[in-house]
Computed example of a mutant assay.
Amino acid sequence: MTAPLQPTAIHAVPAELCDCGFRVLMIRQFNVGAVPPAFAIIDQRIMRMPPRLGRHGVSFAATFLPEVMSWLIDHLGRPSLHDDSGRSYRNPRWPVVCWHDRERYWPSGAVTVEWFAEVAFQDHASWMAFRTHWHDSLMGRNGDVDGSAGEAEPCDPHDAEKEFSGEALQRA
């Protein structure tokens, strides 16, 4: 039996999947009164952990782990390409990565802001190849563990929550 997840837990939570991408929980933010927020970095296996910058807080960069980057480069090419004049441009085959936040209430009365990295692939075939290869990582540390046990309900549930990839592509 799994113990209920607490607001301070950093255990992996399975990614939310959609037709052409995913959303993975990266950071849980605690706002307590008039003090700077505290952050719990979630232990997941697709994106790099946001680096801590010493006393200056946390960098909110969202990049893939080195092994995921290597796989993407092998399948989609380098993230940056060069035209005939040598100028670099974004590889249009690469997925778009952006941030999404969602407030969450916990049974204990705690309120947190959960920060997700949203990844939207440019085509269904690339997404399906990625999803197949990285399935266990998308599901958390072990694909057979239910990391959502004890998770709180979102404050404002939205029926189209998993349709975020279209919005992510529009923002890019």
Rank of each mutant, 00 (worst) to 15 (best):
G57W: 05
R93L: 12
A62W: 01
F39S: 03
Q6M: 09
W94S: 04
G166L: 07
P66D: 03
M139E: 08
A9R: 01
R141W: 10
E67D: 15
S70H: 12
P79H: 01
E163R: 10
L53W: 13
C20P: 00
A12W: 02
G150R: 00
R48S: 15
N142L: 10
D84F: 06
R90D: 13
I73G: 01
A168V: 06
A152H: 03
V58L: 15
G147H: 00
G109S: 13
R28Y: 02
N142Q: 12
W99K: 02
E16D: 15
Y105T: 12
I41Y: 02
V119T: 13
L169I: 11
W71V: 03
E153G: 03
P157D: 10
I73R: 01
S88D: 11
D159V: 05
V145F: 07
Y89Q: 11
P14R: 08
V13S: 05
P79C: 05
R52A: 15
C18S: 14
P14A: 13
V96F: 00
E67H: 10
C20L: 11
E151H: 07
R102T: 06
P107Q: 14
L65M: 13
R78L: 13
R87V: 09
M47R: 09
S108W: 07
Y89H: 15
G143N: 05
D83K: 05
P7H: 09
S59H: 13
A40H: 09
V58G: 01
G143Y: 10
A61D: 15
A38R: 12
P36W: 08
V111S: 12
Q44V: 06
P79V: 03
H133D: 14
I73W: 02
F64I: 07
A168S: 13
M49H: 10
R90A: 15
P154T: 03
D19M: 07
T132H: 11
H56N: 15
D123M: 00
T2W: 06
T63I: 12
I46E: 00
W127E: 06
D136L: 05
P79K: 02
V145T: 04
I41F: 05
P51N: 05
L72M: 13
A172I: 00
M139P: 00
V68C: 09
R104E: 03
V68M: 07
T8C: 15
A9M: 04
P37V: 08
